[in-house]
Write a protein that binds this DNA or RNA. Sequence first.
RNA 1: CGGGGCGUGGCGCAGCCUGGUAGCGCACCUGCUUUGGGAGCAGGGUGUCGGAGGUUCAAAUCCUCUCGCCCCGACCA
Length: 437
Amino acid sequence: MRLSQFFMPTLREDPSEAQIVSHKMMMRAGMVRQASAGIYSWLPLGLRVLRRVETIVREEQDAAGCLELLMPTIQSADLWRESGRYDDYGKEMLRIRDRHDREMLFGPTNEELITDIFRAYVRSYRDLPKLLYHIQWKFRDEIRPRFGVMRGREFLMKDSYSFDLDFEGAKRAYNKMFVAYLRTFARMGLKAIPMRADPGVIGGDMSHEFIILASTGESQVYCDRALTERDVLGTAVDYGADLQTEVDRWTTPYAATDEMHDAAKAAALGDRLVEARGIEVGHIFYFGTKYSKPMNATVAGPNGEPVLVEMGSYGIGVSRLLGAIIEASHDEAGIVWPDSVAPFAVGLVNLKPGDGACDRLCDDVYARLRKAGTEVLYDDRSERAGVKFADMDLIGLPWQVIVGPRGAKGGQVEVKRRASGARDELGVDAALARIAR
RNA sequence: CGGGGCGUGGCGCAGCCUGGUAGCGCACCUGCUUUGGGAGCAGGGUGUCGGAGGUUCAAAUCCUCUCGCCCCGACCA
């Protein structure tokens, strides 16, 4: 993509309404534009990252045996009356009336809809277990949205739902999602720590929040240092195997949010205690028959008797993750995208468009990167060098290839790694090899 | 919803207290010069001063109402 053809309205100054670094940088990089409080338009650069994050989430859900479907944003109030949540949910739910004065709502979550789909078709225990998910926009009319996409009213969420015959089955589903979540966040370059969450009325220990550590996080968290030092992606996962040992390995060391904090247990860790700020990016929980019972979602059991299905749900805040990733990965100059979610892998900077040597070298690098399937943003604008450097650092592409008249005469380009700032003068072949590595 | 703050050109802001018909920086357009970290000079365009009423000879400025946005609190992926 040539920057002169792209749409990336960067800002030199921080917009006054943005308070936290991720919000400021997303606005300055031209990723999003606020449409109204807590509601955002996604501009091309932001949408690219959103799609990449979404893709990683999808791939890991698929790998865990979760099946994708897509439910609507607008739901009927009737289903929510069945579960009893229409009245319970309160003002956070955006309620709408259609032209026939039917009561509708913009879904804040989808337990009712998925349970309705399930009960309509699944009749026998032989059809279990089922693990279904979708990635869809949600709306929660937060009293006070803030922090950009971190706490918007409209947000993109991945929500999965498990259906099992009994508690043991539900636990297997829970463990699959637990492990899938570890891998999902690790692939985005994040250290996500599972922490015991308040299980609410259900009780038990099957509710975890996945928290990433970032100095600007919304809540205080505590954990064993060992949890922050683990290599999650080193070994492949067999989702057909029993994952309990792996889950235990993560849930045994101490890790808690403020609400669940046990000062005595934390103190026992000594210098292994990490006290940090955290951002919740995922939440998984088992809730048994909370919805299957009022909505009468049963299957025929082995003896022919109806059995209420055991359910769980598993959420990931997809749009929120963009803010969280930036909070966890930025510097003074701007965003530092992890390779896996970067909007482009490489930024190619032509310091002097119109200069024969610079243009030829850039065209060559651009063509060869594209041929290799590498996504590259080519800054071919007739801007000053400083502007190009500042923009490129701001939007945080992992690699920069800088072509200026100084090196171009000798066929040399400069390769800069955004994360470390390391720069090297290389020939084109060596530069391409460096990036491909 | 309670408490506080702010709405002035695309962005960031001054002007408001003490009414006199709108300004600064950046951005944008034209020309020349510059050209490896947000250039210089010259010229140019840009505003229903959030909206509606009111007071006044005169309102960005004073008064009333209203809408939007931001911050603190309760809520939340």
